[in-house]
Design a protein around this nucleic acid. Sequence first.
DNA 1: CCTACCGATCGGTAGG
DNA 2: CCTACCGATCGGTAGG
Lengths: 201, 201
Amino acid sequence: MINTIPDEILDAANTLFAQRGYDGTSLQLIADAVGIRKPSLLYHFSSKEVLRDAVLARVMEHWNDVLPSLLNAATGEHRFDALVGEMVAFFADDPSRARLLYREFLDRPAEMATRMHEFLSPWISILADYVRRGQAEGLLRPDVDAEAYVANVIQMIVGGVATAHVFGVLNSGSSFDQQIKEITRTARTALFIDNLEISHG
Amino acid sequence: MINTIPDEILDAANTLFAQRGYDGTSLQLIADAVGIRKPSLLYHFSSKEVLRDAVLARVMEHWNDVLPSLLNAATGEHRFDALVGEMVAFFADDPSRARLLYREFLDRPAEMATRMHEFLSPWISILADYVRRGQAEGLLRPDVDAEAYVANVIQMIVGGVATAHVFGVLNSGSSFDQQIKEITRTARTALFIDNLEISHG
DNA sequence: CCTACCGATCGGTAGG
DNA sequence: CCTACCGATCGGTAGG
């Protein structure tokens, strides 16, 4: 047995909430996916809301684990690559994470605004300071709105992964990887000065 | 009486579907918002699915009305401004439209991929051709992936408006308008060559 | 556009 | 972790 039953419940709930939404996913459906009965599920998570909270917390905790070392490991353009690369890798590795987050943004805007504020504000401040320092050094575009830029890049990646299945069909030539590449290019181009030559480095 | 009852039903359904999702919105709730009984609602729209389809169709039809004249009215950077401006204006005017669309992307990915393909593919082809022509003329960045760029800009605007309430709280200084401005700046910078000086024109 | 009603499914509990 | 069960709400119908 690799996973404990609570872990299996969290995995199944994350996938199903992302696919069908919170209201569209019955506890019965999650229990079936795990292979237990509904009251057994409610023994591990005392209510459907408690389960939702646990699923969401697990997705967000990843960034507290990974951001500190990521920010210290590199500077300048290397730090940009490390950050955007980690975000793209995390969400593209399992798009259910992006869809779950996005559904929460839509289902519980006030609660998620508070939660994101508490969770992301310290990180956003740090990133925005990097941007402003880069602007002062003449490396980054002066017209960048630091906080809004960071927020927009997060939205672009999470939203882009969450809706890749829809927008990827809009043309014959554009695959998931191409969309991710274009998102990364857009984020980079909107930030750095004179990056036309090095954007494919 | 300004609106017919079916129009009032569509308005209420759009707002409530956007706020609470399709599964989270009962026909009773919509009927209450309009001020009629549930069976009366089902007289105008024979099922909940039929109502959803009508709401969605109304949002998408706008673009068939507005895109032809918009594309003919201007060229180059003026056309970019006209297009992005219209998209931002339409969704920012009533963010429920953006949230409704995004929920459909998540709730019915396969159906929406088909629907968006049928609906947007012709327009995307035209826009992508504009991009390629601009690249050939040396006005637009050669590293732009035309189709992926257009899809990403649509996602950035719709997703940005749909989640503005969440990301707008991440810092004290960034309002809804600032986020929209930064999205527009990002889309422009990722497309045009040497637009550092004219981006505030 | 209404009252009255139905079968199905929901989240959750009792009790073991 | 299970069987058995409950009140509430769901989308939809009958009949006018």
